[in-house]
């Protein structure tokens, strides 16, 4: 169960505003990365975000660079999930591979306002907002397994350990 406050942004939130290119090759620990999350879009985000908070975006969330930090900085900041009308493909992959839940629920995006409380029940496959339930389809098998393992790296570690 994920529950927290919604942080809502518009269409085409790109990786440069999620995690600026000027830090791409800087060596940062997760705590440091969390401080720069959404830095060029909403400087208040990194200061005020709480574990379990949910980012709500429009179309093409995460477009732009392939930088994985755009997903991992959100994980480090404690973000519980990103709900959007659609995701850019590399960001979508990076999120799954970093263990970050990403959901396409356009109706919910339209209803949710910044600051609203949002709950996501991953077992039942529903998002709850103002008492209203928004169901979402189950994720494909391998994707679910990667998320459950906490990302691609821990997933593979488990797989390869099994083989050995």
């Amino acid at each position: 169960m994920i529950a927290g406050r919604a942080w809502k942004y518009g269409d085409n939130v790109n990786t440069d505003v999620i995690f600026p290119g000027r830090y791409t090759y800087a060596r940062m620990e997760p705590a440091e990365m969390a401080k720069h999350a959404l830095e060029d879009l909403d400087p208040s985000f990194a200061r005020e975000v709480k574990p379990g908070d949910v980012i709500v975006g429009g179309r093409n969330f995460g477009c732009g660079s392939s930088r994985e930090q755009a997903a991992t900085c959100l994980v480090a900041a404690g973000v519980g999930a990103v709900v959007a009308k659609g995701f850019a493909r590399i960001f979508f992959r990076n999120a799954i591979n970093s263990g970050l839940l990403v959901l396409e629920i356009p109706d919910a995006v339209d209803a949710i306002q910044s600051g609203d409380r949002v709950e996501i029940d991953t077992e039942r496959g529903v998002l709850i907002h103002h008492g209203k339930k928004y169901p979402f389809p189950p994720l494909p098998g391998v994707v679910q397994e990667i998320l459950a393992a906490g990302g691609l790296i821990p997933y593979l570690r488990g797989q390869l350990a099994k083989e050995a």
Binding site: G64, S65, S66, E68, A71, I90, R93, N94, N97, S98, G151, L152, I153, L156
Partner: peptide, 23 residues
């Protein structure tokens, strides 16, 4: 992310993330 460039010479090329390259 600009890996699709090699389609100019007839390849199928796509961008992936860091964990995926490690995989």
């Amino acid at each position: 992310s600009h890996t699709p460039t090699y389609g100019a010479v007839g390849a199928f090329s796509a961008g992936i993330g860091r964990s995926e390259m490690a995989a």
